[in-house]
Amino acid sequence: MTTTSKHDERIANLTFASVYPHYITKVEKKGRTKAELHQIIEWLTGYDEKQLQKLIEEKVTFKDFFQKATLNPNAELIKGVICGYRIEEINTPLTKQVRYLDKLVDELAKGRKMDKILRTP
């Protein structure tokens, strides 16, 4: 299943700051912590807590968020369906990266063990 250019553009222009509170709510509602959320974001993007806070304050778009990120080389091990899309079939790199993050947040909220979420052997 491929994404449309309109869908990709909408995701690119969405601000990380607008979605971040929803990530927190989702994981905390399921008994996980903001610290765990930050751990998976740092694993995927390389952003530490201070950098993440700065990006939130600057209200960067997902496009800028991922352009500045250093994506974890194991990110391509993230597979499955999220938001109706099979991650490994998404052709647009930015949309795929956003869905990687969505999938990690989803796995955290579902109670998956951290070593599994972070794809450690």
Rank of each mutant, 00 (worst) to 15 (best):
residue 92 T to Q: 12
residue 27 V to T: 14
residue 44 L to T: 01
residue 90 I to C: 08
residue 73 P to A: 11
residue 107 E to K: 13
residue 12 A to W: 02
residue 121 P to Y: 07
residue 34 K to R: 13
residue 101 L to S: 05
residue 79 K to H: 05
residue 107 E to Y: 03
residue 111 G to F: 04
residue 78 I to R: 04
residue 56 I to W: 08
residue 118 L to G: 11
residue 111 G to M: 07
residue 50 K to A: 11
residue 94 L to G: 08
residue 54 K to R: 13
residue 103 K to R: 07
residue 45 T to E: 01
residue 55 L to H: 12
residue 8 D to W: 03
residue 10 R to E: 03
residue 11 I to L: 13
residue 9 E to K: 15
residue 22 H to T: 09
residue 95 T to I: 00
residue 82 I to R: 08
residue 121 P to S: 11
residue 118 L to V: 05
residue 49 E to N: 14
residue 85 Y to A: 02
residue 72 N to H: 15
residue 70 T to K: 14
residue 101 L to G: 05
residue 62 F to T: 00
residue 40 I to E: 06
residue 12 A to M: 04
residue 83 C to E: 09
residue 28 E to K: 15
residue 106 D to P: 04
residue 6 K to T: 12
residue 20 Y to Q: 08
residue 109 A to R: 03
residue 37 L to A: 06
residue 40 I to A: 07
residue 42 E to V: 00
residue 49 E to G: 13
residue 19 V to T: 10
residue 84 G to H: 01
residue 38 H to L: 13
residue 29 K to Y: 14
residue 105 V to E: 06
residue 112 R to V: 09
residue 51 Q to E: 15
residue 11 I to D: 01
residue 68 K to F: 02
residue 88 E to D: 01
residue 7 H to T: 06
residue 102 D to L: 01
residue 27 V to R: 11
residue 57 E to T: 11
residue 114 M to T: 03
residue 6 K to Y: 12
residue 47 Y to K: 05
residue 108 L to Q: 08
residue 7 H to Y: 13
residue 53 Q to N: 14
residue 115 D to T: 07
residue 15 T to Y: 07
residue 52 L to R: 10
residue 104 L to K: 03
residue 75 A to K: 09
residue 14 L to R: 13
residue 88 E to K: 02
residue 55 L to Y: 08
residue 100 Y to H: 07
residue 64 D to C: 01
residue 68 K to S: 07
residue 61 T to W: 04
residue 94 L to Q: 09
residue 92 T to F: 10
residue 50 K to S: 12
residue 92 T to A: 06
residue 84 G to Q: 00
residue 96 K to E: 04
residue 114 M to H: 05
residue 36 E to M: 15
residue 118 L to H: 11
residue 81 V to I: 13
residue 79 K to Q: 06
residue 73 P to S: 09
residue 53 Q to I: 05
residue 82 I to Q: 06
residue 31 G to Y: 08
residue 31 G to E: 11
residue 4 T to Y: 04
residue 48 D to T: 05
residue 35 A to H: 06
residue 50 K to W: 03
residue 92 T to M: 04
residue 91 N to Q: 15
residue 21 P to C: 10
residue 54 K to C: 06
residue 90 I to H: 03
residue 7 H to R: 13
residue 13 N to F: 09
residue 86 R to P: 00
residue 11 I to K: 09
residue 44 L to M: 00
residue 35 A to I: 11
residue 85 Y to I: 00
residue 105 V to C: 07
residue 23 Y to T: 06
residue 6 K to H: 12
residue 68 K to V: 04
residue 7 H to C: 00
residue 119 R to S: 00
residue 46 G to F: 08
residue 86 R to N: 10
residue 21 P to Y: 09
residue 17 A to W: 08
residue 89 E to R: 12
residue 78 I to V: 15
residue 21 P to H: 09
residue 71 L to N: 04
residue 61 T to V: 05
residue 85 Y to F: 11
residue 6 K to N: 12
residue 65 F to V: 04
residue 48 D to S: 07
residue 76 E to G: 08
residue 53 Q to E: 15
residue 95 T to K: 01
residue 54 K to W: 02
residue 112 R to G: 00
residue 10 R to P: 00
residue 24 I to L: 14
residue 8 D to M: 02
residue 77 L to K: 15
residue 52 L to I: 08
residue 110 K to L: 02
residue 26 K to D: 02
residue 7 H to S: 01
residue 114 M to P: 06
residue 41 I to R: 08
residue 121 P to M: 05
residue 106 D to S: 11
residue 33 T to R: 14
